[in-house]
Every structure is written in structure tokens, then in C-alpha cells.
Design a binder for these strands. Structure first.
Lengths: 231, 231
DNA sequence: TAGATTGTTAATCGATTAACAATC
DNA sequence: TAGATTGTTAATCGATTAACAATC
């Protein structure tokens, strides 16, 4: 990155950069020593190598022409850019069963993250623990969040609890939330960064595209999903 | 839609159209009779009204200038465009706990979808039921999927089972999958439409943006998240 | 050096926004 | 009719791809 040409990285780049962070973390973890070049990252992750270099230009790291990037250096630079610590803490909100099941679907440590607080909207869940972490009421959010220094949360409550949950998390100091509960209405605390992920909408979109009605119109274009149908 | 100007709807439009489908479905369900205009949809869903009209131009429906769209007509046209039936069936794959918890996070019927088959990779789960549906082995996928006419699936297995799961689903006739398990590698059966959703990457991206380092560079631009920070 | 790969500029592509005539 | 809203065209914006000089 040249010092003068500081510019905002597009959302899409930030998302890809976070994938590179996961990927390089995995390489380091597995003791990989092969050359780490933009085209290797690109091939592995299904993006173009120009995109990788363009994305990395937002990050304070330098590659070596002819050689590529140093694993650790790149990892640290990405972590720094993304404001991530080692085993970056996050909170999760949802019913106990879901939270329990989640940890096998998404083994946080593998990705350099760490669940440090669980909240539920169901009083029956309070006090029970998941992986040694007590499930608590959102009433405790402010205390827990500030004590553990949590800035981001995964939210998967029932739909009716979403607005309240987001407000309480934000009030407690959580600045960013990934919302897995589908809600149509996007209102949320001003200043809070919320990523809305809508399972039903994504499923519906899949129903639409898997028999692509428009396929007959673009016979020359490459097939829709071969180069990574990511969202 | 004019008949001659058939063109492929962009991915982003399809995703928004599926949100309109959810939204209009909810309006119908709640007996709403207020005018249904592009600007109303736009305001409610946090998109621009031009985008709504542009999106709807891909769909075989006509609005009435000065009046807007007929609820039912629009709903049916959207369902038709998206290839959706009423209570569109989908399968879900994951551990039992997660699947159980999922149904409160994502009440499918509310969104015009219906879980008709559950699969687990854990033999302990086989035979137990969730909401009256037996959890089965993926060995039964072909039979179940073809019998129930399932075309799409929600996949949330542990990471190591993902490639096998996708292959078996595809072999069983499932053409589209939403993958909630984070995987870096995007390889999947050719011809299968897979949407990769990566919880850890999205969380990391949130860590990056909630203290937006680049904010100081674009003082004139509107704040990043006020008009719907959707992904 | 020769080969490989970076970082960046220019060209392309696609999607969003603005604007407005058509029309209920 | 007058007011409101559609459908679409043109203008803008942003992101991706291509290309290549710089450089290890």
C-alpha cells in the first residue's frame, strides 16, 4: 500500500480480505511452506488473481515480485486491517439448542474467532452452559460485553426478539452484528453495523436460479456457478 | 415486462425479488389493503424505489400508474418468476440440535417455505423427529428427495462433511444449496448452484467496518449503515 | 540474468440512480 | 381532470478485468 493513496476498501473487498485471513490462518496452522502468491490464493478461493492483488493493495503489506507474500506477515497485516486480534471474541444470541448445534457447524477457533458470551431470550436457558460458557440473559449484556471486550455478535433469536436484541446489544457496546434471523424490515440502531442474512430469501433465489430461465438468452456466457457462486 | 426485452435479471435483483416475495406474502397474510407501490416496498425494505421498479421489470407483472400493484397478482408473479410453489419445499442437513433450534430462528412457513426433509451426518440422530419429520441418513437422500420433489437444501453440517454432503444431495437431485457451514474452498459439484455463506468472514468484516478506518477519507459520503447494511 | 509475480493504470463491464414521458 | 405512480431511457457510479512496467 502506498501511503498517499489511502482509499476506502469496497465492501466486497473487505469480505474477500476476511476470507484471505481465514485461508492464510489455515495455511499457517497446517505448517504450509509453499509459495503464497496472489494466483494461489485466487485459485484456492475461486476469485481472480487480479482481484486478490487489488484487494491486498488496501492492506498495509508488500509482496515480493516473483515470490509472493510471506505467510505470517500477510496474516498479521490482514488481521491488522480487519481489526482482529488472535482468537477474536464475539458474542452469540439465540436459543440454547441452536447455539449448541452452531459450534459444530462453525468451529470458531478454526477460523481465528472465539465465542466468549452466549445470550438467550429463553429464561429456561439461563445458567446452563455451552462449552463451559454460561448462557445468560440479555439483561447482563452490558456487564458481560464490557468486561470481555466484545465488539461483534452473531444474532439468531426468534424474529420477534430481533429489534429488542439489537438495541440491547448496541446499548451494551456491541457495534456490529450478523443477523441470521430473517427479518424483512431493516431498521436497527443508528450507528450499529448490521449484516442482514436472510435464509429464506437466499433459498428462494436458489430456487429461481437452479433452473435458470434466462439461460437461453446468454449462450456465450460461462455457466453461472462454476467460478464460485458465493454471496 | 415487455415481451421482447427478455434479459437476465442480475443476481442482486433476484435476491431482492425474493425479499419482495416474502414481504408481499406477509402483507397478504396480515390482510393489508393499503396501496402497494414501488416506493412503499422500497421504504419498508430499505432499498430505492427505482431499484424496485427496475427489479420488477424482469417479472411478468404490470403495475398501474398512479395506483401501484395488486397484492395477489404481484405475489403470484414473483412466485412464478422465482419458480416457487406455495409452501415451497426444502431439505435441511445438519446435526439435530442445530436443526431443532433453526426452526425457531427461521420459521419457514412464515416465509412461504416448508421444511420437508431433515438429514444428519450423526447416526445417533437417525429416526428421531423434529416437528414430525424424521431425521434420516443421507443414504436415503435420493429416495426422499425424489419422492418429495425437493430442489433446494439448507446445508449446515460440520465442515469435514461438506463436500460429501453436497455431492450426495446433487446426486439425489437437489440442484441448489445454501451452505451455512463455512468452507474456504468453493469446489462443488459442477452444475449445482451453491451459495456460500461464511459466518466467520462476515463477522470479521464487521469487526473491520464498525470502526471504519477509512471514514476520515470520505466526509461527504453518507454514513455507512443507515440505509440498510445488507449483504 | 531469466522467470515469475507484484502493484497500478487504463479499459470494460455491470449495476444503481436520476429523470421523465406515458398513463391510470 | 389533477395527482400519483409506472416503466424505461440516459447518466452516473463503482467494481472487475485486462494489461504491463517495475522489480525481486
Amino acid at each position: 500500500m502506498t501511503v498517499s493513496a489511502v482509499m476506502r476498501a469496497p465492501e466486497a473487498s473487505v469480505l474477500r480480505l476476511s476470507r484471505y485471513h481465514c485461508f492464510v490462518g489455515e495455511l499457517i496452522h497446517s505448517g504450509d511452506t509453499k509459495r503464497l502468491t496472489s494466483s494461489r490464493i485466487a485459485a484456492e478461493l475461486g476469485v481472480s488473481d487480479e482481484a486478490v492483488r487489488r484487494d491486498l493493495s488496501y492492506v498495509d503489506v508488500e509482496g515480493r515480485p516473483g515470490a509472493g507474500y510471506a505467510h505470517r506477515e500477510l496474516y498479521d497485516a490482514l488481521a491488522n486491517f480487519l481489526d482482529l486480534s488472535a482468537g477474536h471474541p464475539f458474542a452469540a444470541v439465540g436459543n440454547r439448542r441452536f447455539l449448541e448445534g452452531l459450534s459444530t457447524v462453525f468451529p470458531a477457533e478454526t477460523f481465528g474467532l472465539r465465542a466468549v458470551a452466549y445470550f438467550s431470550e429463553d429464561p429456561e436457558d439461563f445458567g446452563r452452559s455451552i462449552d463451559g460458557i454460561q448462557v445468560r440473559s440479555l439483561d447482563d449484556a452490558a456487564e458481560v460485553v464490557s468486561r470481555l471486550g466484545v465488539g461483534i455478535a452473531l444474532v439468531a433469536t426468534a424474529p420477534e426478539f430481533v429489534p429488542d436484541t439489537l438495541e440491547r446489544l448496541y446499548a451494551a457496546g456491541v457495534g456490529g452484528a450478523l443477523l441470521l434471523t430473517p427479518v424483512l424490515d431493516t431498521r436497527h440502531p443508528e450507528g450499529m453495523n448490521v449484516t442482514f442474512f436472510r435464509i429464506p430469501c437466499t433459498l428462494k433465489a436458489l430456487a429461481a436460479t437452479h433452473v435458470d430461465r434466462a439461460a437461453e438468452m446468454k449462450p456465450t456466457a460461462p455457466s453461472c456457478c462454476c467460478d464460485g457462486g458465493s454471496a
